[in-house]
């Protein structure tokens, strides 16, 4: 189930950047606790960015992209910050009742 959520989150994050918020939140909600949600949020954001670097690499543009300082690094920071904060929204809900 979690793998399916991760897959779906990745797809929507690739389609539009707001997908990083939605995907991050979904991953956070699937976590067992807040700590895990934050961890998964960081992994998800970093993963999306790395996937993009690979995509650029396939097109022969990874070096050019990484050289686009600060754009490439800002892209990483914002993606990770967005996905982590979105995953942290888990704290809005208490699943233990």
């Amino acid at each position: 189930m979690r793998a399916l959520i991760l897959f779906a989150a990745t797809v929507i994050a690739c389609l539009h950047w707001f997908g990083i918020v939605v995907g991050g939140a979904a991953i956070g909600l699937s976590a067992r606790n807040m700590r895990e949600a934050i961890f998964l949020g960081v992994i998800f954001g970093t993963g999306i960015w790395l996937l993009f670097v690979v995509y650029m690499g396939v097109n022969g543009l990874a070096g050019k992209y990484l050289a686009m300082i600060p754009i490439s690094y800002l892209g990483l920071v914002l993606t990770v910050a967005t996905s982590t904060l979105a995953a942290s929204l888990r704290s809005l809900f208490d699943f233990k009742n």
């Binding site: 994050a13 690739c14 389609l15 993009f52 993606t79 967005t82 904060l85 942290s88």
Partner: peptide, 20 residues
């Protein structure tokens, strides 16, 4: 925090978010 981040960064994300 997320709302604040999105308010400040949506322009950047429109421009250079991965893939989109």
């Amino acid at each position: 925090l997320l709302i604040v981040l999105l308010c400040f960064s949506h322009g950047y994300m429109d421009l250079f978010a991965p893939f989109s």
